[in-house]
């Protein structure tokens, strides 16, 4: 059937992610989901802003005591670059170059894992050095919930991309999996969008008090 048809770079359609009705539906539905996610993260940001530095006593660390620019800068660079590499992957997807797409997705995953490693180190650092815990103050709860939700999205996005890469490794591109790759990359970009606001609102604005 149409979705499993084999292609050549010449016959591969211009927008493979929307070449079938199923693809069109997924594409639209996923954008709507991202619209909902926008509200979800906005709610988490709102809570964080309302509870920022809201701690039971002065012995608890506040935002300006905790954050360090170099680590956050490194994490930002990792995630921004991974956004570019997933754009490269989609570029090759549109040109029907499966091998190159997989390679760039692999680099995306590697960068994502590095980001995750930094985040785990960071949380661990706050927890042990500053006693800044999820259960120690409202500020801690709000911080870990916001940044942790983002981290959870990173984990989910990585698992998604890895699953797609393994599942389709032997099969190559067709109109059935092209929308899936495309959506996974949209999701990955959205994670980056959220991170842009996290490093701005949480870290940079947190540093200046």
């Amino acid at each position: 059937m149409a979705a499993e048809q084999k292609f050549t770079p010449q016959t591969w359609p211009e927008s493979p992610e929307q070449a079938t009705l199923e693809g069109k539906n997924k594409f639209l539905g996923f954008w709507f989901f991202l619209g909902g996610e926008t509200v979800l993260f906005a709610s988490l940001f709102a809570t964080y802003l309302a509870l920022k530095d809201s701690v039971p006593s002065d012995t608890h660390a506040k935002a300006a005591d905790l954050f360090e620019l170099p680590l956050v800068f490194l994490m930002t660079m990792l995630l921004l670059t991974s956004s570019l590499t997933s754009v490269f992957a989609m570029y090759h997807m549109k040109n029907y170059n499966f091998k190159k797409m997989q390679q760039w997705l692999f680099i995306t995953v590697a960068l994502g894992l590095a980001f995750l490693g930094c985040e785990i180190y960071e949380f661990n650092h706050y927890y042990h050095e500053y006693e800044h815990k999820f259960t120690s103050s409202a500020f801690g709860s709000a911080f870990y919930t916001l940044v942790g939700f983002h981290g959870g999205h990173v984990v989910f996005g990585l698992s998604w991309i890895i699953a797609l890469m393994i599942r389709n490794a032997k099969r190559g591109l067709d109109l059935y999996n092209a929308p899936k790759f495309y959506l996974a990359s949209l999701y990955w970009h959205f994670i980056d969008v959220v991170w842009v606001f996290i490093f701005t609102v949480v870290y940079l604005m947190g540093m200046v008090g």
Binding site: A50, L51, T135, A138, S141, A142, T145
Partner: peptide
């Protein structure tokens, strides 16, 4: 989620004693 975290996982979103609101 905040209600779940506050009641079951020890967070302090709504707990005034922990700085919550």
């Amino acid at each position: 989620f905040m209600l779940i975290f506050d009641r079951m996982f020890g967070s302090g979103f709504f707990d005034v004693a922990m700085g919550g609101n």
